[in-house]
Design a protein around this nucleic acid. Sequence first.
DNA 1: CGTATGTTTGATCAGCTTCAATGGAAGTGG
DNA 2: CCACTTCCATTGAAGCTGATCAAACATACG
Lengths: 254, 254
Amino acid sequence: MSVTLIARPPGAGGSCDDCPLLDCAQFLALSPPLRTLLAGLMQGQAIAIEGAEIVAAGQPGELFTLHDGWAYRWTALADGRRQIIDFHLPGDLIGVEAALGGPVTHSVTMLTSGVLCRFGRPDLARLLADHPALGELFLRSAMAEIRSLERSVAALGRMTATERLATLLVGLYRRSSAINRVAPGSRSCFFPATQRHLADAAGLTPTHVNNTLRHLREQGIATLSGRLLTVHDLPELTRLAGHDAAPPGRRLLL
Amino acid sequence: MSVTLIARPPGAGGSCDDCPLLDCAQFLALSPPLRTLLAGLMQGQAIAIEGAEIVAAGQPGELFTLHDGWAYRWTALADGRRQIIDFHLPGDLIGVEAALGGPVTHSVTMLTSGVLCRFGRPDLARLLADHPALGELFLRSAMAEIRSLERSVAALGRMTATERLATLLVGLYRRSSAINRVAPGSRSCFFPATQRHLADAAGLTPTHVNNTLRHLREQGIATLSGRLLTVHDLPELTRLAGHDAAPPGRRLLL
DNA sequence: CGTATGTTTGATCAGCTTCAATGGAAGTGG
DNA sequence: CCACTTCCATTGAAGCTGATCAAACATACG
């Protein structure tokens, strides 16, 4: 894992103050002193290449913010069947579990090459003691995560293949949009997941994912091609996903 | 919801110091002052009858600890399909989401009649500020919840009907055992969920749950009959569930 | 240009669903 | 105390969604 992380030269990524993610309404607002504190906790950036396991099941890990690129969180059954639990986009916090010292039951792998902001293993107990506001922020972040997982459970348990894929696509499209990765006026976003990744996330086979994507394409709902997702009919995709218009909860940005 | 809650006469449940749940290794250890503080936050107990919705999707709710009885957390799709996200057993914290003031996207319904310890809507921000240790405890609790949901996602996405039911049964059996509800030497525990509940939790139809339970019974693995779950072959049930021996994370007991 | 990876399509099959009907157990009201 | 209702468990038969297996095709890359 960490062998595949390459330290980035100091200053190469610019200051945290200039981080483009700060402009996103997606994240919980932080007081200026708290923001400064968190920036101070950052131990530097690292470049992670595609395929790098930045968190490994059963092993101690550290806390990251994904700064650029996509990753995915997954577990494997004993016989090798793989389930992708969720995808991670820029701004996502990765490794809270590991940083808390709890048992890590999943792995996180880079879907693309990207940049991570490293936070090591901060002494969370002391951090929370010194800055009580952080506790609530972490907790709210965790609750947003729980809501998202509950939605996945409902999708995997009770939805058809088309609905599950719609759920995945609309969710990722919305998240891309929330971090300003959908150009105004555009209906497209970067989408590096292969059909195999989608299959492992939706609990389907790659073959059936392909059939279902063709269906969505022929219905003029959404097109996935060449690492680009284009949503032609967002209302219909949203309806298929059974999504209420409620935006995903705000999360913590370190 | 709260209409179906009947306040319990003060003192009827005995003092928190005598709570039998305190003896369970299942829960995070608390310092005596913190334990006293939490006991002081309790606003009394309430009796909830079977079928009572103690948390309703989209509505403000309050924080509870389930003291006795079972409940289940669920969401419904637009067309009525129901997914049970998880079951709640005595000792489980219910309504953290609601108490945080976040959007509540699920409902919690009593599976049996039971007793709740009510905590209203504590000012969590101030509570965390005054008692920083609580932040870490809540966070660890939330992470345990996330691990459990991730396991559900993997089960629903990648497991067969038999494996899913094994996952459910072994999980609930272990949790019953962790709160001393499996008599020493016994292989049975109280199990009030009907086959319809199991179907809605495992993402199956009641018919297929019945077939699968018969299979488990005929293989001499587990028997579910008359609100009683008997596990004849725990190793085999555990193997089917793909469970590593890792016990579920410890949770917070209020 | 050969190789690896991903996409597309087809054919067959099985796990699970759907629909339907019966029987048992528990609760309710006369 | 018994008919009546209701809920749940059980079983059967037929059908469909999605899995499995297989192979061709496209694309990127060293």
